[in-house]
Design a protein around this nucleic acid. Structure first.
Lengths: 234, 234
DNA sequence: CCGCCGTTACGTACGCCGTACGTTCTGAGG
DNA sequence: CCTCAGAACGTACGGCGTACGTAACGGCGG
C-alpha cells in the first residue's frame, strides 16, 4: 500500500538543519540513557531494540549507527550504573571506606533492578575496573594478608551483588505472583511447614532490610578477626 | 515439494506398538532429563524447544503434550536440581547440619551452571519449599532468636546462590573471553591498576576455591556471636 | 558555484525463537 | 467393527536481533 509513494511523511535522511523537528539528534549517550529508562520501567526482557528506537522517535536500525550491537549497549548501561556509585570519603579507615562503598554500590544496583543480573554476564568496563582497583587497594592498606584481601574482595562483592539479586527477585515475585503466594501459603497453612509460614509472616511485617548490613559486618569482622589470629602467633 | 506425498518416511501418530523404533515414548520425566542435559552442554540460551525436541527424536509441538510451556519446564528442571541435594545427617548440631547442607546445595548448583540464575526467577516448587523448611527448622532449634534466624536464613541462602552465580560467571568469562582478558591485563600491566593485576595473578595461580566455606563460617560464627551478645545481658 | 563523499537515517529481509491451532494417526473400549 | 480420546505432527504467526542496500543531508575540494 505505502510502497507506491516513495517516502513517508517525515523527511528522510538527517533531520533538516540540526534536528529541526522535536527530537534530539540521536547520540550514543542519549541511546544509553533511554535504554536505562526503558529497562527501569519494563525490565530487561522489556528492553528491545525496536521499543528503544520507538521511545526515541527513530527507526530500529538507526541505533546501530551509534552502538555496535545490543551486547555493547548493555555493557554501556552497566558502566553507567556503576558510575552512579560515589567514591568513599578519603578520611575513613580503609575497611570503613570499603563498607560505605559496598552500601552505596548496592543502592545504585537497587535503583536499577536489571543491573545486578547483567553484571554477571558482561565483561567489566573501565568504570568497574576502577572500582575493583579501589576496593582491592582499600583491602591491601587495611593490613590484611594478601590471601585474606583476595578472599575479602570476593566476599564483599558476592554479598553486594548476591544480596541485591535475591532482593530484587523477591520483590518481583511478590508483585507478580501476589495471589499465587496468597493461595500458596494458605494451602500450607496448618501443614508440615510451620517455619516457612512464620518466615513469610515475618516478611509481611517488614522484618527484612537491615539484613544486608548485618551480613556485611559479619564478613568485615570475620576478616579482621582472622587476620589478628594469623598474625598473633608471630 | 514434499506436500505431494501425504506423509513422511517415519510413521506418524504414536510409534507403532509401544515405541518400536529406537526412542522412548516421550514422558515428562524424559523431557526434563533431556532438557537438563542440553542446558548443561549449551547453557540456558542453548536450551530451545526445537533443539530439545530434536535431541529426543521428536517434533517440537509434541513436547507440549507433556509440559504446559517452557516456563513450567524450567520450573521442573530447577526442582530436579534441588532434589539432588542430600538431607544432612541427623546427628549433627543444627548449625553444623546447616553448614553441610549449604555446601551440598552449592555442589548441586555447581554441577548445573544454569540453575542458579534460574532459581532467582522461578517460584519455588515443593522440593525447594521443603528445603526452606529444613533450613529454617535448623536455625530455629539452634537457639537463635527469631530475628537472627530470619536473617540467618537469607544470609546463608544469599551466600550459596550468590557465590555460585559469580563463580560460574567467572568461569564462563575465563573460557569465553580468554584472549580478550589476556590482552586486557597486558594493556593495564604497568598502569595505575596494580592491585587488579595482582588479583588476576592470584587467580591464575588458583588462589580461589576455599573462599566459599570461609565466608560461610564468617556468617555462622557471626550469628552465634551476636546471639550470645544479645542473651548475655539477660 | 558545482559536484563529490562520508555520515546518518531508513526499509526490507533473514533466521531464529515460543507457541496457538487444526489435522492425522494410533490403540483401546464398546 | 466402529468410535473416540489422546499423542504426534505441520503450518503459521508475531516478535526478536541484525545484515544489507538505499536515500538524503552537510562539508569540502575544485
Amino acid at each position: 500500500m505505502a510502497t507506491t509513494e516513495p517516502r513517508k511523511s517525515r523527511p528522510r535522511g538527517r533531520p533538516a538543519t540540526g534536528a529541526a523537528d522535536g527530537r534530539h539528534p540521536l547520540s550514543r549517550d542519549a541511546i544509553v540513557a533511554a535504554a536505562i529508562d526503558l529497562a527501569d520501567e519494563s525490565g530487561e526482557s522489556g528492553l528491545t531494540m525496536r521499543k528503544l528506537a520507538e521511545s526515541l522517535g527513530y527507526e530500529v536500525m538507526s541505533l546501530y549507527n551509534h552502538v555496535a550491537n545490543k551486547s555493547q549497549l548493555l555493557d554501556l548501561m552497566v558502566e553507567a550504573v556503576a558510575a552512579e556509585t560515589p567514591e568513599p570519603a578519603e578520611d575513613l579507615a580503609p575497611l570503613e571506606a570499603l563498607r560505605t562503598f559496598a552500601i552505596d554500590s548496592r543502592a545504585a544496583l537497587e535503583r536499577h533492578p536489571w543491573a545486578a543480573n547483567l553484571l554477571l554476564r558482561q565483561m567489566p568496563g573501565p568504570v568497574r575496573i576502577a572500582h575493583m582497583e579501589l576496593q582491592l587497594r582499600l583491602l591491601a592498606v587495611s593490613g590484611l594478608s594478601p590471601e585474606l584481601a583476595h578472599h575479602g574482595y570476593h566476599a564483599v562483592n558476592n554479598h553486594v551483588v548476591g544480596y541485591t539479586l535475591q532482593h530484587q527477585a523477591l520483590l518481583a515475585s511478590m508483585t507478580e505472583f501476589a495471589e499465587e503466594i496468597e493461595e500458596f501459603t494458605r494451602r500450607l497453612s496448618n501443614d508440615d511447614h510451620p517455619h516457612v509460614i512464620e518466615h513469610v509472616e515475618q516478611h509481611r511485617q517488614g522484618e527484612t532490610g537491615s539484613s544486608f548490613e548485618l551480613v556485611l559486618d559479619f564478613i568485615l569482622d570475620g576478616l579482621r578477626r582472622l587476620n589478628e589470629a594469623d598474625s598473633r602467633p608471630t
